[in-house]
């Protein structure tokens, strides 16, 4: 199992697994271990998972987080997939989950997750990160904290710099 990085830069072992979307006609294969399944499939068969507290979902970058409105906090983990690090839709998805849908549990970045995007992800509400395997996980703490502050309000702060300056 890959380790995950948390927002404070520490590394912890982890056994959550991302279950890929099954091909057409195939059924979803749920493993014994903690699993993240495609969000729409979880919604469609949510009652089947009621006896398990280790089932979460993942959203792909083209998917609408709004489909989870009202039920987000039934999930222990939501992951957002970055199919390519340069696809920036995941940042908006994260903020919407946190700020619009009031999601409170773990929000995880998966897929093409590289070092230099970690701080943007953190500011948009992610709190765990599965770094791409070829990247040096020991550099994550530094990359999560290149900047000690930002100009804008985002998920991490309600105080844009213009409000902090005025107070």
């Amino acid at each position: 199992m890959p380790d995950v990085i948390t927002s404070d830069g520490s590394i912890r072992p982890d056994d959550w697994v991302v279950v890929p979307r099954p091909a057409d006609g195939e059924s979803l294969d749920i493993p014994e271990q903690p699993a993240l399944i495609p969000a729409d499939l979880w919604l469609a068969g949510k009652e089947h998972f009621e006896d398990r507290d280790d089932i979460g979902v993942w959203l792909d970058s083209h998917e609408e987080p709004e489909i989870l409105a009202g039920v987000v906090n039934e999930l222990p983990v939501i992951a957002v997939n970055f199919p390519k690090f340069s696809d920036g839709r995941g940042y908006s998805i994260a903020r919407l989950l946190r700020e619009r849908l009031s999601y409170r549990n773990e929000l995880r970045a998966v897929g093409d997750v590289l070092l230099d995007q970690l701080q943007f992800m953190k500011r948009c509400g992610f709190d765990t990160y599965v770094l791409r395997a070829d990247k040096d996980i020991n550099k994550a703490a530094r990359c999560l904290n290149f900047f000690t502050q930002g100009y804008q309000a985002a998920t991490d702060t309600d105080e844009p710099l213009f409000r902090r300056r005025a107070s």
């Binding site: 690090f85 920036g88 908006s92 903020r95 943007f120 953190k122 900047f147 930002g150 804008q152 985002a154």
Partner: peptide, 17 residues
């Protein structure tokens, strides 16, 4: 200048289409 500061290192909009 207000727009410059808001847009500088904006965490949500660094990887636009």
């Amino acid at each position: 200048e207000i727009i410059r500061q808001w847009s500088t290192f904006h965490p949500e909009f660094a990887f636009l289409p």
